[in-house]
Design a protein around this nucleic acid. Structure first.
Lengths: 223, 223, 223, 223
DNA sequence: AATGAATGAGCCTTCATTCAT
DNA sequence: GATGAATGAAGGCTCATTCAT
């Protein structure tokens, strides 16, 4: 006889294992057979509980997003009244944490990064729910920091400059090209902190440089 | 009839089509059947000319790297005597071009980016030939620009900050989330120029900020 | 419906059909499609139940060996105390039965013979389990029957003389060159008996002749 | 430009190489690509020179039979007037030589043995031309040696006993289970001689035993 | 006469999904 | 509710053969 547990338990186990495997191998190379085996359930369980591999993936993704946002809230938990420099640091901290810190959000970070780069059709909806708000927020911050009259282009470019710096380490980590951080003997928390400091410092200066350029252009044009 | 020629033509046709499809769908989702159909050859042609799908992919990749390096040489064609700021601009230009300009390097850019993020086993060799030199070069540049005593960590972080800014637009382009550049009515050449300017400006300021930080730390320590 | 049972039945059906077809056509020319068709299952059943054609073959072979040994035990069921002439007869009976009697061991005999002549890589292990013991046993018997001082060479040659006589009819049967036994109206049991008698009589005399020769040589040498 | 040799040369090269490979791997596992490669010609050569793989095989087989018969003539070159014991020895010598002596007949022996055991459809005709005469001859010899009134059955069984002893070593040689002859340091010629002696001695005694049995039976019946 | 690029039929295998129990 | 035997569509690869040159 089969164990008549809760049904919820198996569901959760599958979700967890699936996240690991999707993160490790990607959607296509993750096999339902392996997920079920590692989740110690039968091969029909995924279809039984989730309807299909696609739908399982969507669930896994949604849970990853939720987990990541919960552990690393969008702007680091700061309110809208905090100075923009602080909110930038908070946002960078959040992004770096999400993609670098497997200790606290499991494999959600890898999954997020993977989807960031090779999007799957099935979950366009979810992606827009999760990623666009982040970009919108980042663009808002850039507008605050870039001063009076930045062009949409400049706002977008700066936003991308910041966002992709945050992804950088994550990408390198999960593609296996782990940089020689190990020798620095940094804990994950320290790594997140160090990276946040670096990117914030680097970016604030970068943004300021773009702002100066805008003003120079503006002055030239007004002459 | 255009058949039974010297075999080179068919080979090239397959290579071109395969690059498109690998870039578009990734290795796993690219079907040899589709490649052959679009190349107007028999389904066995890939095995005949390349031995296997794996080996075809390796060839495609190698050609993509070659093409990209030819059109966008590593440091923009500058010699080692040029000032480091210029060489940074050249390197950024090269990276941006490779990942943004489908007009001149076909789908090589997409392929490069894809491999950057989800590496395939078969071509570790090639990846090391193409990617590591770039990172080494970039780290060398950072050392020049960061002044007397940067730590390995600082060099690495700055290099990553620059490199991943360059990939940013490429990633966004090829994941289909085409940013609203279109409305700016920029040609690809203009886009590459604009991005190069932005990233160079942003990064030089960022690097300078890190350099200042280093010196501050150094002074504090020497007190 | 007779479907979705315990899986054993389908497995057995495949095993039986596969034995027939492997025996009939050999490993390479046996097609999984035909096996599945004749076993009235899906083409994927072999992979599901056995993993691969290779592994199916190994299973088939192991079962054939087991069946054959069960129906025709190595020395005809005689104990080690029986006189060597009787044990020789028993061994001959066993070998002849295994290779001649399709009525009681199905196609195992054909399979054994086929493997005897064109060994397959995958099952070296099994071959050593089944064939070497038989040869060792036969050589032991020869030593008993050849008297005091036979050379290894003489033991081996006599063993081969006996063993291959036993295979003779089997080979001729399964290569389709059925000798005109049919006209003798012999049942399979009678055929096995008749052949056993013939080979035993022929071989005991042959062995005795070699033994005489040994003694002659020995005498000559001692003169 | 292609070498415009004789055309005969290439043909012969293919025939030789094909014999090697067919002997080594069997018809099914021999690949035309490998044959052509090792024969240093193009992949279409087999079809060009022989029409098909089947027909090449038939040619190879016919040549193997011819070679074997030439080097080891059916009854060892003895005339019909020689005493039957001598002609038996000659026939055994011929059979053993054909299947054991790769030095003088190339791989023809292996090929013959292989075909002996797993006949190929395409060359039934040739097989009957080569094998049936041998069996007829052997049965004739048996009739001479078995005395006045042997049954067809007894004649056949004795013929098989002799013939298959001759194949024994060959089979063991070419299936890779080379017996420890090596340690005896026998040259091929010596091996052929030794085996011929053994089988002749063994068989003459065996035949005599069957003859005695016939006479016993006959006496019993006539009582 | 000879070549080798190209073909297509066929094979084994994979894998998400279904369904009887 | 849960299982796992079974399915079928599809994919990559093999290989003897063909045909334009």
């Amino acid at each position: 006889m089969a164990k008549r547990k809760d049904g919820i338990e198996t569901r959760e186990k599958i979700l967890t294992v699936a996240c690991e495997i999707f993160a490790e191998k990607g959607y296509r190379d993750a096999k339902v057979e392996e997920i079920c085996r590692r989740a110690q359930t039968n091969i029909a369980a995924i279809n039984y509980h989730f309807g299909s591999k696609d739908q399982l993936y969507a669930q896994v993704w949604r849970r990853a997003v939720d987990t990541a946002h919960q552990v690393y809230p969008p702007e680091g938990g700061l309110g809208p009244d905090a100075p923009p420099e602080e909110r930038l640091r908070g946002t960078i901290h959040s992004l770096v944490g999400k993609t670098v810190d497997p200790g606290r959000i499991g494999d959600a970070g890898k999954l997020l990064l993977r989807e960031m780069v090779s999007p799957t059709d099935a979950i366009e909806q979810i992606r827009h729910d999760a990623i666009r708000p982040m970009h919108d927020r980042m663009r808002g911050l850039m507008r605050e920091l870039l001063g009076p009259q930045p062009s949409d282009e400049q706002v977008l470019f700066c936003a991308m400059s910041v966002v992709h710096q945050c992804f950088a380490v994550g990408i390198r980590l999960f593609t296996g090209r782990i940089p020689p951080f190990v020798k620095f003997n940094l804990s994950t928390e320290q790594l997140v902190e160090t990276l946040t400091n670096h990117i914030t410092c680097f970016s604030l200066a970068g943004i300021q440089a773009i702002r100066d350029e805008i003003e120079t252009e503006s002055n030239e044009r007004s002459l």
